[in-house]
């Protein structure tokens, strides 16, 4: 008990604990849609793309770097979607080119000009140090926005995830729904970046959702379970990070991985069978018509 209460006497740990738990829950929640759409690679790519915006905006617009990096991430997400849909370049290639270029730009900017905000290593692997109240506020706002989007667009998101072509002819605005999901994803990555880290965000999008998929065949229950697994990983990972003295993102992902292994051992073949088909990368699902 003492081990649980001791770190709470420090303000930085209290803020870190709130952010890590909420980050885990948010990424676990949104990760269900990402994993079921076969977009895990987009989550990975987008976190790297946002890093470029994160670095650039800290240099050129220090006060507004969260907003700037968010816009950068959304622009990257839209660019990925458009390049993959409209050109002969495949979705994987488009993600690879756009996001690694953005990441490389971020590294170059950090190397050349240094940083006026969180340090380079913290951005890559996450840190519980230096979390401000405004970061907590951003995270709460994005979490609330995500919950509202999913609540009010639940059927459209489910329909476009399961069967985009039929959703399209059933009156769902598929393009708009996908754009909304990419915006939510970009914002979620952005506000969790400082605690989880660029290189590990994708893992927290994928692991809780895969664990939840192994446990249930119901979409609604999968959303709830994935959110809980993400939150627990964030909470436990933060304590372990404090005691082990390693970056928070690393421990959060390792806790998630441990949960995955335990669930895999319990559910066995049935659990593995449920995850079949979650590994396909995103690709345009509707062929583009010839323009008149």
């Amino acid at each position: 008990m003492e081990a649980l209460l001791d770190p709470l006497q420090y303000g930085f740990f209290q803020r870190g604990l709130i952010v890590a738990t909420l980050s885990g829950a948010l990424l676990g929640f949104i990760g269900v849609y990402i994993v079921l759409r076969g977009m895990s690679y987009i989550g990975h790519g987008l976190s790297h793309a946002i890093f470029g915006g994160f670095a650039a905006m800290q240099l050129f617009a220090a006060s507004f770097y969260v907003l700037g990096a968010g816009l950068w991430g959304i622009a990257s997400a839209i660019a990925i979607t458009n390049v993959a849909r409209r050109s002969r370049l495949g979705a994987d290639a488009a993600i690879g080119v756009i996001t690694t270029a953005s990441f490389a730009l971020g590294v170059a900017l950090f190397a050349r000009f240094g940083s006026s905000g969180p340090a380079f290593d913290n951005a890559l692997f996450g840190s519980i140090l230096g979390i401000t109240n405004s970061q907590i506020l951003w995270l709460v706002l994005v979490t609330a926005f995500t919950a509202i989007v999913v609540f009010t667009r639940y059927r459209a998101l489910l329909f476009t995830t399961f069967d985009p072509e039929v959703a399209d002819v059933s009156g769902v605005k598929v393009g708009r729904t996908e754009a909304l999901l990419m915006i939510v994803l970009s914002l979620a990555i952005l506000v969790t970046l400082t605690v989880i880290g660029v290189t590990l965000v994708a893992a927290m999008l994928v692991i809780p959702a895969v664990v939840a998929r192994m446990l249930t065949d119901s979409f609604g229950r999968m959303l709830v379970l994935s959110t809980i697994v993400g939150a627990i990983s964030g909470l436990v990972g933060m304590y372990l990070s404090y005691y082990a003295g390693v970056p928070s993102g690393t421990m959060i992902v390792l806790v998630g991985t441990a949960v995955f292994l335990v669930v895999l051992a319990i559910t066995g073949v049935r659990g593995m069978r449920r995850t079949v088909g979650l590994d396909s990368h995103a690709a345009p699902n509707v062929k583009e018509a010839i323009r008149p």
Partner: peptide
Amino acid sequence: NFPITVAECVQM
């Protein structure tokens, strides 16, 4: 393999 029941599928 999508996690959905028959009723959920019809309802969507």
